[in-house]
Design a protein around this nucleic acid. Structure first.
Lengths: 250, 250
DNA sequence: TTCTAAGTATGACAAAAGTCAGTTTTGAAA
DNA sequence: TTTCAAAACTGACTTTTGTCATACTTAGAA
């Protein structure tokens, strides 16, 4: 297993051949219970690719021809608003499937997926995905459950965007991002000392506000000792304090 | 089939016994292709109820024990924000399933469902729903497809809430609501003359703004001959004009 | 028909957030 | 180590939206 990276600005793709059975996220993936024959077929047919930080896996307009299983890394899913401004819709973490929504709805991708760090991604063809879905009802169950969960999160986020002021939404996003970068999950027991390395512009397009507003409120949070700012990186320091901001409502 | 309604303020429930096969929405429902034996079982087990306008079908905290199939009517799904303010998350129309998200995610309902007009709703037990899901993979497919579609709409709406000014979001909502009340679908060829009968407060909690702001912008739209206001009802008059507002971005 | 609570409307004002223009800092590449 | 484009920051200002107080209208119940 060789990993060459001459330059960060040049993008290289690498094919891997670690067996699925050895994949770190196998146990949490939708394929955890398939039989050996199917596992072998999956192994031989899937295409594993290393996507370098900042690279796109798919973008709007493309027709889905399968799904992507995220073996490692973090992916941001975003779309463009009418005015051309990016909106980050959600994140995908290792163990999750990517591109299911578009494949199932039978339409082109409506979002762009961009890696936030180097990410290992397995491509599974539409045919293979549907075949396993048919053979193993538990897979459909898991997919439905995951979609249900995403939908609930989306509805929660809609409410937040519609009703809460920017300051609260930012505090909320910082905690969630801290968990994401610290543990790879969107919620965790203790987000303290999680290091958020995203541009202020990216943060703004999660929170749904202007970059300058993010910068100003971050400066407030720093002043209030809730966070530390180290260059471009944000470190969460006072979790209860941030939670208090989220819960405080007029 | 008798329908008694002594008073609108008193709520009466009626049990029906129209066979599923005669249900107006059978062809578009997820049960369209089940065999006769299952149809008979479904017929005997489902519980059909007329919910009067304004009545709740379920609300947060309740544990889902099945799904609801909407035979006729329109249902609003809403949740409360941290500040106690209602947020309308989406609408369900005849032919759609209700409560799938909660049932599949295995958690309590996170939304309240309220009828906007008298609605006929069939309850289908969890056991029956999962049994049919297992027997007919096409049902799982349809459910997944529907969840995917809802997720896409939710992501679209998130972007809109995060990026567009109230005026544009209101214009957008008026068109969509006009279709909903005119045709029972959330998009239609011509929303002209659709009659929206919702309170300004409800409209505000779709758009994500204050009631007064809705009232003011509606007055502008009336001034601009885009809509007519007849008492509490809003009638869409100039669809291209409203579309122009949505598309106009600085 | 009358009554009344709920809903609608309007103005004055305050607060929140966006925009623009400019300066400073940062970090990756040469 | 130096360079420089991208990113972060700051201030002044405008626009948008929310809030509160108050008056008016509507639609459904008695």
């Amino acid at each position: 297993m060789i990993y060459l990276s001459i330059s960060r600005s040049t993008i290289y793709l690498f094919m891997w051949n670690t067996p699925c059975a050895n994949c770190a996220v196998m146990s949490q993936s939708i394929f955890s219970e398939i039989d050996q024959a199917d596992m072998i077929e999956l192994d031989s047919k899937r295409i594993t690719t290393l996507y370098v930080k900042g690279q796109k896996i798919f973008y709007p307009g493309q027709v889905p021809i399968g799904v992507y299983c995220l073996s490692s890394g973090i992916i941001k899913l975003s779309k463009l608003g009418e005015n051309g401004k990016e909106q980050i819709v959600r994140f995908a973490k290792s163990g999750e499937l990517l591109g299911v929504r578009a494949l199932l709805s039978g339409k082109k991708y409506s979002t762009t997926s961009t890696t936030l760090e180097d990410s290992m991604v397995c491509f599974i063809s539409k045919r293979m995905f549907f075949k396993l879905n048919l053979k193993y009802p538990y897979i459909s169950q898991k997919v439905m459950k995951s979609l249900s969960h995403l939908l609930e999160e989306a509805e929660e986020r809609m409410t937040s965007l519609a009703q809460r002021p920017v300051r609260e939404r930012l505090a909320e996003s910082l905690l969630f991002l801290s968990c994401l970068f610290k543990t790879g999950k969107t919620d965790c027991d203790d987000p303290t000392n999680g290091i958020i390395s995203l541009t202020r512009e990216d943060i703004a397009s999660i929170v749904g506000t202007a970059t300058e507003t993010v910068i100003r409120i971050l400066a407030d949070f720093k002043e209030e000792k809730l966070i530390e700012i180290k260059g471009r990186k944000i470190v969460i320091k006072n979790v209860p304090g941030l939670k208090r901001i989220i819960k405080s409502y007029s």
